[in-house]
Structures are given as structure tokens and as C-alpha cells.
């Protein structure tokens, strides 16, 4: 008896954390795992785009005159938008830049904007939501009204109205040569300002119920400070929600960036981004459909994959919400 007991304890001393339990559930969700793989693949390709292009000896800005037919409206030579062993995804009509190079460099731009904006708005949303839910009363009331205002605000129209002139001013203020740098910073800032409110509201309502749990009272009875209760007792329970929100807001910001660039108020030529590529491609959608379909499909695949990861994460961390799989 004593012998078996000893074996048992040494084998299972380290506990399974709620993270571990969530991951174990996530692992058995095949759709979510595949989506996670796709998302990671996209991120890797985007952030390794420079070395990849160096190895392949491609340049997103280089114009390959030999790949376009100067007699046929400068359309790419060959079927499928000029797909060949040199240009894997064809070349751009008109100028002959490599589509693959532009796609993965553009992915880096688009993904960076989406990731930075998501992380910033999640950080702000979590802190503000925690403060509103924890302190309740007047603080909550004031924050609640600000959130109402931000959520009711027609963000997109405001971005259309002010993004261009503000980007120009910011460029002057920062003294940078490339206007796109100013645009990226501006987009991140503006999208963050309007992006944190939704999560803050979610977190607030979670905190309102969480703070009534007795472990908060227990921390208080030990003399814990507000900061300790907020960041050490309450915050760990909110990470799953933040991760779900991240995987849902990433595709959101990805499409917003693409839409803004598409409308000509985001990233501008010649810097590639998925929105810029779509904007360029729309005019040629009928003559060179491949050129349009490639960035569009890529965007759809990544957005769908990220959304499915989000669903998988929320399933994994909320076992009560049992789905038939």
C-alpha cells in the first residue's frame, strides 16, 4: 500500500493548470488545430519574407519587363497572370513586379498593423475594463459613457475623413521621408483608440462577477492592495478572454487595414499591403483574374483560419459550452 502510494505521488505532483486543461481540449479540436497551423504558417512567411526573398532572389519593387507583354496592354505573358518558375504567383499587369514577393511583404505590413493594433487595444481594454469592473460606482459610470461614445462613433467614416490629412501632418511632424510610415503609425493609433472599447466592456462585466467571488474577499482579508487584487487575483482569469478577443480582432483589423488601403486612405503605392494589392487588382479583375484572386483568397484564408482559432480557443476555455463536433 505504502509503496504504490509513493509511486502515485511522484508521478502526479505537478498539477495541471487551467491553461494546460484548456490546451488539452484545444488539441483535440481538429479544425482549430489546422487553423492554428495555417495562421502560424502565414505569420512565419510574413516575418521571414525578407530572407525568403533574398534566397529566391526576388524584389517586390523590381519591375520585370520581360514578364509583361508590351503589345497587349502590358498584361503578363502567359496564362494565369504569368505564373512561371521565376514568378510563382505571376507578375503585376502594367509594371511586372513579382506578385509573390509583394504578397508576402504586403502580408508583413498588413499583419504587423493588425497585430500591433490588436495587442495595444487588448492591453488598454483589459486595464480599463478591470478598473471599471473592480472599482464600480462612479469610475464605472464614467468609463461606461466613454465606451458608449466610442462604440456609437462612426469610426470608419471618421477614418476616411481624417486619415489622409492627418497622415500628412504626422509625416511632417515626424520628419520621415516615407509617408507610409506616418500612415501606419496613424492607422495603429486611430484603430486602437476606437478598438479597445468592446473588449473593455466584456472584461468589465466579467470582473463584476469575478470580484464577488470569495477569493477576492480572501485577498482583501489578507490586506492585499487594489493593484495586487486586480493584477494577481483577477487578471489571470481573464487571459482566455483576451486570447479569444485577439484571435477575433486580428482578422477584424486585417480586413479594416485592407479596406482602408483599398479605399486609398491607408497604405499607398509603392509599398505593398494586401489592401493596396486588391485596389490595384480590381481594375484588372476581368482581364487578369489571377492577380485579383491571389490576394483576395489569401486574405480570406487567413481571416477564416484566425476566426476558427478563436472559436476553438473559446470552446477550449469554456467547457460548459459543449458543441457537437
Amino acid at each position: 500500500m505504502a509503496r504504490t502510494k509513493k509511486v502515485d505521488t511522484t508521478q502526479a505532483v505537478a498539477g495541471r493548470s487551467p491553461w494546460r486543461l484548456g490546451w488539452d481540449r484545444f488539441r483535440f479540436n481538429r479544425v482549430a488545430m489546422v487553423s492554428l497551423g495555417i495562421s502560424i504558417f502565414f505569420f512565419l512567411v510574413a516575418y521571414l519574407s525578407s530572407p525568403i526573398l533574398a534566397i529566391l532572389n526576388l524584389d517586390p519593387y523590381a519591375m520585370d519587363r520581360s514578364a509583361i507583354d508590351l503589345d497587349n496592354f502590358n498584361n503578363p505573358i502567359g496564362p494565369w497572370g504569368g505564373i512561371s518558375t521565376v514568378h510563382w504567383l505571376g507578375v503585376e499587369p502594367g509594371v511586372g513586379r513579382d506578385v509573390f514577393a509583394r504578397l508576402i511583404i504586403g502580408a508583413r505590413t498588413s499583419i504587423t498593423i493588425a497585430t500591433v493594433t490588436s495587442v495595444l487595444s487588448i492591453s488598454i481594454g483589459m486595464v480599463i475594463g478591470l478598473i471599471a469592473g473592480y472599482f464600480k460606482g462612479r469610475v464605472d459610470e464614467a468609463i461606461g459613457r466613454i465606451i458608449d461614445l466610442l462604440l456609437a462613433f462612426p469610426t470608419f467614416f471618421m477614418l476616411i475623413a481624417i486619415a489622409r490629412p492627418m497622415a500628412e501632418r504626422l509625416q511632417v511632424a515626424l520628419g520621415v521621408d516615407d509617408k507610409n510610415i506616418a500612415t501606419i503609425i496613424l492607422l495603429v493609433v486611430l484603430l486602437t483608440i476606437f478598438g479597445w472599447a468592446g473588449l473593455a466592456r466584456l472584461i468589465r462585466s466579467d470582473v463584476l462577477s469575478l470580484r464577488e467571488r470569495e477569493f477576492v474577499l480572501a485577498a482583501e482579508s489578507l490586506g492585499a492592495s487594489h493593484g495586487r487584487i486586480i493584477f494577481k487575483e483577477l487578471l489571470p482569469s481573464l487571459w482566455p478572454k483576451a486570447i479569444i478577443f485577439l484571435s477575433l480582432s486580428l482578422p477584424g483589423f486585417l480586413t479594416t487595414e485592407a479596406a482602408l488601403s483599398f479605399l486609398g486612405i491607408g497604405i499607398q503605392e509603392p509599398m505593398p499591403s494586401w489592401g493596396v494589392m486588391l485596389e490595384m487588382a480590381v481594375a484588372k479583375a476581368y482581364t487578369v483574374p489571377t492577380y485579383f484572386l491571389i490576394p483576395a483568397t489569401t486574405l480570406i484564408i487567413l481571416v477564416t483560419a484566425l476566426n476558427l482559432v478563436g472559436t476553438g480557443v473559446s470552446d477550449a476555455f469554456d467547457p460548459k459550452l459543449e458543441r457537437n463536433q
Binding site: 477569493f215 480572501a218 490586506g223
Partner: peptide, 28 residues
């Protein structure tokens, strides 16, 4: 000090037992 009624809600589910019992030392 206080011992609470509901043993399921009085311990933070995200902390290990070691961390929970160590909290008084850390806080004070």
C-alpha cells in the same frame, strides 16, 4: 483572519495551492 464558506469560490482557480497559501506571506 477569515475562513470562507464556499471552498470552490474562496480559492483562486488560476493559482497553485502553494501560491494560495504563500499569498499571506507575500502580501504582508
Amino acid at each position: 483572519q477569515m475562513v470562507f464558506q464556499d471552498p470552490y469560490s474562496s480559492l483562486n482557480p488560476r493559482h497553485t495551492v502553494g501560491r494560495i497559501i504563500a499569498a499571506p506571506f507575500e502580501i504582508q
